[in-house]
Amino acid sequence: MEFVKKFMTEKAEKFNGKAAMLGMFALIGAYYFTGQIVPGIF
């Protein structure tokens, strides 16, 4: 339980949320410019 308290802080959760939103915008941008969900694969 100490491991969870040490690494699952509010700051870490906010950073994770920002990284997830950046990934979503990157996917939308890639789809907009290339017409493919994952350019080069799909």
Score class of each variant (00 low, 15 high):
M1E: 07
M1N: 11
M1V: 09
M1G: 13
E2I: 10
E2V: 12
E2Q: 14
E2K: 15
F3R: 07
F3M: 03
F3A: 06
F3H: 09
F3K: 07
F3Q: 03
V4R: 08
V4W: 13
V4P: 03
K5V: 05
K5L: 12
K6N: 04
K6A: 06
K6I: 04
K6C: 01
F7W: 12
F7D: 01
F7C: 01
F7R: 03
F7Q: 02
F7S: 02
F7G: 02
M8H: 11
M8G: 06
M8N: 12
M8E: 04
M8L: 12
M8R: 07
M8Y: 13
T9L: 02
T9H: 05
T9M: 03
T9Y: 04
T9F: 06
T9Q: 00
T9C: 04
E10V: 13
E10F: 14
E10W: 14
E10K: 13
E10G: 11
K11G: 05
A12H: 07
A12S: 13
A12P: 03
E13G: 14
E13A: 15
E13S: 13
K14T: 06
K14Y: 09
K14Q: 12
K14P: 01
F15V: 09
F15N: 10
N16D: 11
N16Y: 14
N16V: 08
G17A: 06
G17W: 09
G17F: 10
K18I: 07
K18V: 00
K18T: 00
A19C: 12
A19Y: 08
A19N: 04
A19G: 06
A20W: 09
A20C: 08
A20R: 13
A20H: 07
M21A: 12
M21C: 10
M21T: 07
L22A: 15
L22E: 10
L22D: 09
L22G: 11
G23K: 03
G23V: 02
M24H: 10
F25A: 12
F25Y: 08
F25G: 04
F25W: 10
A26D: 08
A26R: 10
A26G: 10
A26V: 15
L27W: 06
L27I: 03
L27N: 07
L27S: 06
I28P: 05
I28L: 14
G29D: 01
G29S: 10
A30M: 15
A30S: 14
A30C: 14
A30H: 08
Y31G: 05
Y31A: 08
Y31I: 02
Y32E: 01
Y32P: 00
Y32M: 05
Y32T: 09
F33W: 14
F33H: 05
F33C: 05
F33V: 13
F33I: 13
T34S: 11
T34Q: 03
T34C: 04
G35T: 01
G35C: 02
G35Y: 02
G35W: 02
G35M: 01
Q36T: 02
Q36A: 06
Q36S: 08
I37C: 08
I37V: 15
V38A: 10
P39N: 00
P39V: 00
P39Y: 02
G40N: 01
G40Q: 00
G40T: 01
G40K: 01
G40R: 01
I41A: 03
I41Y: 03
I41H: 01
I41L: 09
F42W: 14
